[in-house]
Design a binder for these strands. Sequence first.
DNA 1: ATTTCAAATCTGATATATCAAGTTTCACAC
DNA 2: GTGTGAAACTTGATATATCAGATTTGAAAT
Lengths: 236, 236
Amino acid sequence: MTAANPSSSSQAEFEKIDASFQMTVRDHVHRAMRSAIISGRFQPGQKINERNLAEQFGVSTTPIKEALRQLETEGLVEALPRRGVVIRFSMSWAEEMILARAALESMIAHLAAKRIDEKGKAALSVIATRMKEATASGDADSLIALNETFHDHVHKSSQCGYLAKLIERQQFYDASIRRVIHLDPTERQKALDEHVAIAEAIAAGDADKAERTMRDHVVRSGDTYLSIVFKKKGEV
Amino acid sequence: MTAANPSSSSQAEFEKIDASFQMTVRDHVHRAMRSAIISGRFQPGQKINERNLAEQFGVSTTPIKEALRQLETEGLVEALPRRGVVIRFSMSWAEEMILARAALESMIAHLAAKRIDEKGKAALSVIATRMKEATASGDADSLIALNETFHDHVHKSSQCGYLAKLIERQQFYDASIRRVIHLDPTERQKALDEHVAIAEAIAAGDADKAERTMRDHVVRSGDTYLSIVFKKKGEV
DNA sequence: ATTTCAAATCTGATATATCAAGTTTCACAC
DNA sequence: GTGTGAAACTTGATATATCAGATTTGAAAT
């Protein structure tokens, strides 16, 4: 819907401005810590000291505690009552996060295939075409952006708000590494083929195929990521 | 391992007592609020006032804020920066939580079938036998407990710590309603058949069948729950 | 040298105070 | 009556203070 829509009502309709862009201290800490953990800047089992953290960020312990609760619920740290929090992130944790994302993305792809409308199919097709172009021209940055657009569109088509949010929390790809991956022509082509297959399955309403191709895509691309970050050719 | 094990060392070995049973105020608030939300004691979109809540619980706002951050990350409430938190739970949210659990449980069942050892198979068989007995005798309380034991055992067999934790957070079954469900002989029998099928598939190492039967089980039993709680015969 | 145990210390958990953004109220102008 | 806007009020966000459980330390006992 566009900002002004005079046809349906005498009152012009505007999107409510989203307050979520506002940055609070706790969110800043949360993002910074999350990023630090998934990029390996803490050792598994390492203890986190609230006062130290607060000092490092130059804030009080209150927003620190809140950020730690969020990380705890995400499963990236573990809180031992009255003993503090320790880092819970390792290669095996990352592997499981990929599996979780594969399970959830394939479920959401299944539903998207069932629920997508004609307009959604057209939009998906446009995204796929842009991906082909960006793949051919080797535009890694565009590909990274299109990748996100593609998955977001699948989420939207599924009409699943909860699942979409849940999937977001399984994401731990780092921008710089994604760039490295997309600069490899072989990898680019694989990802393109998979995205096209997913888009076609969804557009065709083939829920089972959408589910399968999505799962394979998430697992394969996740393994590529893992093998780079953890310097190991890993099969799950 | 038993508490004392003199064979391996001159030093007696004891299980470290698990500190996780300790109840902190924030955990109490978190559980209480979670339970209240999923059992419908708040309306979707309802605003939550931190000071009111603190007063109701008779505590300060600090643990309240922490509990709200946990609920936020779980997706049960939404925090609008500097405007407070609102309830985000409705029938559609519950439906999606069931789908999420189905996706994750089927993934974990798949892995369990691949990774379970002989000892694990034997234990699973014992649980299945107990379930048959409890189903025949109509012991609802035992069935509820066995149900949990069964799923926990599948989780353990899969060797997936992260996935198991994630699944826990998709659980929103209320004890009293579970009891109602298990008191129905037809429902009991359906659940038993499904559990047996899952156990057999896992024991046979048939990962795909374990995955399918687990997903169907979670979706079907979830729908039963939904239809009771939301008083609607719901197909997803 | 090893064990014991209590004091000192550290640190997470909670309470209270302060600040600032958001909301409401209401007098005033048009 | 409607719209404007400033003051009053509410409330989330952050900071600081206090409390209590956990860990460490070190001297005394064996």
